[in-house]
């Protein structure tokens, strides 16, 4: 076994973007070298996405919004659970990729992958509960039925955390789509490979095309057009360093995007995620109707 592995020339993977349910290269034709976290050992070339790739991703995401936001919460829950199933089935691949990306031992990397799988299960269960938790009837002082319900905000641009290539990615992405939004994700700049591979999981998980779009490249280069894009509703700055985050937030102000700022301290991706990442991408809609015969 070991002998044959050594004697056999491995087949390298060409890492590609995941946009609109397809796996394109960057339209720019550019790639950049991705190395492991320790020694600078070459792992692969990743697409160096351009502004135009970001724009294409937004178009794909917008196109996916009506279908995905209109899907039943039960259906979205099943799709998210399917993502967990698919990821579980590719544990070994992701354990290897996370170990390489983050310099973890195989067992620690496996624990990260397990946590990522479990995170999808957690959010799969949230899809049809969040409306009950954050919405409800309002007892107005008059003959009116009055109900507040959460609705997805639309297209969310997500700067994935730089320090956690898979669990971090999943922790920021899953709540975006659990609530019915479509996402354009900029993968961790130096460790984009688990994210790009994750596109393959999504593609085989009944997640409709365009609901998640994954770009690799320079966070600063890609985030600028996303922050100013008029057809992006919200911006998750989790993966932006403080100075860039401030610039992007200022840019997002022009279109009054909903912005989630990066945490001032490093986030612990293993802790209970709470609901704040769900509610960040929800609008509250309140409907009134008279009560009369």
């Amino acid at each position: 076994m070991k002998v044959s592995e050594q004697s056999r020339l491995a087949v390298f993977k060409t890492y590609k973007l995941y946009v609109g349910g397809k796996f394109p290269r960057s339209e720019s034709g550019r790639v950049y070298e991705v190395t492991d976290s320790k020694g600078g050992h070459w792992l692969a070339n990743a697409p160096l996405s351009s502004r135009k790739d970001a724009r294409d991703a937004v178009v794909a995401a917008r196109k996916a919004v009506p279908g995905w936001s209109g899907a039943t919460a039960y259906n979205r829950g099943q799709v998210l659970y399917r993502v967990a199933e698919m990821l579980e089935g590719r544990r070994e691949q992701f354990t290897r990729e996370v170990a390489d990306a983050e310099g973890l031992s195989k067992s620690k990397a496996a624990a990260v992958v397990d946590a990522a799988v479990d995170r999808w299960v957690w959010y799969a269960g949230w899809t049809d509960k969040i409306a009950q938790v954050v919405g409800g009837a309002n007892p107005v002082a008059g003959p009116f039925f009055n109900l507040s319900t959460p609705e997805p905000t639309g297209v969310v641009a997500v700067l994935a955390p730089q320090d956690s290539s898979l669990l971090g990615l999943v922790s920021v992405l899953a709540p975006v789509i659990a609530t019915g939004n479509a996402a354009v994700v900029v993968a961790a700049e130096r460790a984009p490979l688990p994210a790009l591979s994750f596109g393959e999981v999504l593609a085989t998980s009944d997640v409709p095309a365009g609901v998640v779009n994954i770009l690799s490249g320079r966070t600063a280069e890609l985030s600028a057009p996303l922050a100013s894009h008029q057809d992006v509703n919200a911006l998750d700055l989790t993966g932006a360093p403080a100075e860039l985050a401030a610039e992007l937030e200022a840019s997002a102000a022009d279109t009054l995007k909903r912005v989630r700022r990066p945490s001032p301290a490093a986030e612990d991706w293993t802790r209970d995620p709470g609901t704040s990442r769900l509610t960040a991408w929800l609008e509250t809609k309140t409907v009134w109707h008279p009560i009369g015969v």
């Binding site: 107005v140 507040s148 509250t284 809609k285 309140t286």
Partner: peptide
């Protein structure tokens, strides 16, 4: 954010 059906411009402290 607010949809008024068969009414309009109604406000209440309990209503977001």
């Amino acid at each position: 954010g607010v949809v008024w059906a068969n009414t309009f411009n109604k406000f209440d402290p309990t209503s977001p």
